[in-house]
């Protein structure tokens, strides 16, 4: 299983690089699908098949389909590919790559030593502690955030509705 873990990890990294460096938006989104499938495979290799299956169903099977859908609707042709190619010239790559390399070196260095002594200050926070703080003292803020999202949902639904029920539209005439 270790081989499967490293192989799918490698595929995930390469596919994600493909997402960034590809000129064609649809191909880029498909690389992202491959990357998600590879991450699901990593979950399988780690002995968490349930998480892996959900990763495929939710991310690769539903969310990414919507991404592909939107990119298809935009109907980007050869012009968009050419524009992307201009944007992705080596000069543009240089700065972000350098900064990312610094982050990568730091990350590898931290992982290599593997001790908590390198923290700037304080303790390591687990997910459980974060959850307890969020739903304890900060419950009101969390609920306000939820309300904001709900309001956004209602607004989006309202905006979509308005267009459908415009007077004299096709939908109105054909309704029984």
């Amino acid at each position: 299983m270790e081989l499967a873990f490293y192989l799918s990890g490698l595929v995930a990294v390469l596919a994600t690089l493909g997402v960034i460096s590809n000129h064609n938006p649809v191909h880029g989104v498909l690389y992202l699908v491959v990357s998600l499938l590879a991450v699901a495979m990593v979950f399988f290799a780690l002995g968490a098949p349930f998480a892996g299956a959900l990763e495929i169903i939710v991310y690769a099977g539903a969310i990414m389909v919507l991404f592909v859908f939107v990119v298809m609707m935009l109907n980007l042709g050869q012009a968009a590919v050419a524009q992307e190619r201009i944007w992705l010239q080596p000069a543009t790559w240089l700065g972000p790559s350098l900064l990312a390399t610094v982050l990568l070196v730091t990350l590898i260095g931290t992982l290599w030593r593997g001790d908590a002594g390198m923290l700037v200050q304080g303790d390591v926070l687990s997910a459980k502690q974060v959850g307890m703080i969020l739903f304890g003292p900060w419950l009101l803020v969390v609920e306000l955030g939820a309300l904001l999202l709900l309001a956004a949902l209602v607004t989006a639904s309202h905006v979509g509705r308005q267009r459908l029920q415009a007077p004299g539209s096709e939908t109105d005439k054909e309704a029984p």
């Binding site: 498909l30 349930f50 299956a53 495929i56 169903i57 690769a60 099977g61 389909v65 592909v68 859908f69």
Partner: peptide, 21 residues
């Protein structure tokens, strides 16, 4: 497999891409 049914749903999700692409 213990995740048999989920595997079918996952493959059903992948199958959408064939028509889409």
């Amino acid at each position: 497999w213990n995740i048999g049914l989920l595997f079918f749903l996952a493959m059903g999700g992948i199958n959408v891409y064939s028509v889409l692409l």
